[in-house]
Simulated assay, not measured.
Amino acid sequence: MKNLKTLLLIAVFTLGIGGVANAQKMGHIDFEKLVAEMPQTKALKLSIEKLGKTYQDEIEGMGKKLDAKMKKYTAEQNTQTKDTNEKRALEVQQDRAKYEQARQVAYQEMQKKQSDDLGPIIEKAQIAIEGVAASKGILYVLDASVGKGLLVKKGEDLFNDVKAKLGF
């Protein structure tokens, strides 16, 4: 019976030490902030802004042409035949549909570019985090940016180490 109590005490003590050791192998990083500060993300943002400006100029040009056509047709409607006015109304309707379609396509292409180009950036950040965690013997890395819900940050903050590994 005495030996059983001693073994039980040793087992509890060993498990307690193991739990403390595992607790020390945690880290955290603000993943959103890391990705936002990466040079590739900043370059992507500039690229998307440039693409957006190009699309905006094209779409605004289409809009100005449509407005000019509508003003012209409105001013001339009393001097035109009913058949001509109907054709013009259909033409304006088709031009308006092309204008709306161009806006949607531009938005979708910008979203696709951002999604496609952001994937490799995120992957690079994850690989760097895994490398830093492995070099420091950290088993768990929590994302401190998820809803800013990390209330206690007793693990190691890996942000600066990962930035250094990524070279910025």
Rank of each mutant, 00 (worst) to 15 (best):
K87A: 09
K72R: 11
E76M: 08
R88M: 04
T79K: 04
K98W: 00
K50T: 14
R96I: 06
E123W: 05
Q126N: 15
S115I: 04
T79D: 01
Q40K: 13
Q111Y: 08
A68C: 07
L66W: 03
I127A: 09
D117Y: 04
L90W: 03
A75H: 08
I121F: 05
V105F: 06
Q93F: 04
M110N: 15
N78F: 03
K50R: 13
A89V: 02
G52M: 03
Q94S: 05
T84V: 13
G119V: 11
Q80W: 10
A125Q: 06
K42T: 06
P39Y: 07
T79H: 01
G52Q: 05
L44Q: 11
E49N: 11
Q126P: 06
Q80S: 14
K72W: 02
L44N: 07
A125F: 05
R88P: 01
D116I: 09
P120D: 12
Y55Q: 08
K72P: 00
D83C: 00
S47E: 15
G52S: 10
K69N: 01
N78P: 00
N78V: 05
I48C: 09
R88G: 01
G52D: 07
N78Y: 01
T54Q: 15
V105P: 01
L46E: 14
D116V: 08
G61A: 15
L90Y: 08
L46A: 11
E86A: 10
I122E: 15
K87T: 11
Q80M: 12
R103T: 11
K82L: 10
I127Q: 12
K65D: 11
L118S: 13
P39F: 08
L44M: 09
T79I: 01
E76K: 13
D83T: 06
E123S: 14
E58S: 13
V92L: 15
G119P: 00
Q56P: 04
G61R: 06
K45P: 01
Y99D: 01
S47T: 14
Y55P: 02
T54Y: 07
Q111S: 14
E91Q: 09
Y99V: 00
G63P: 03
L46S: 09
Y73W: 14
M110E: 12
T74G: 08
G52H: 02
A128W: 01
L66N: 03
G52T: 05
K45N: 09
Q111W: 06
Q80Y: 04
T81A: 02
Q126M: 12
I48E: 12
Q108F: 04
Y55F: 13
K112E: 11
K82N: 05
E123D: 13
T41N: 12
K112A: 14
K72E: 08
T79P: 00
S115D: 13
Q94C: 01
Y99A: 00
D57G: 07
L90A: 15
Q101P: 00
D95W: 00
Q77S: 13
Q104V: 07
K124H: 11
M70I: 06
E123L: 13
K69I: 00
M62R: 15
I127E: 10
Q94V: 02
T84D: 07
V105T: 10
I59N: 11
T81E: 03
L46I: 02
K98A: 04
K53E: 12
I122H: 15
R103C: 03
Q114L: 08
Q101A: 09
L46C: 01
K45F: 04
I129R: 02
K71E: 13
I121A: 10
L51V: 04
T84P: 00
I48V: 15
K45Q: 12
Q77P: 00
D57K: 10
A125R: 06
A97N: 06
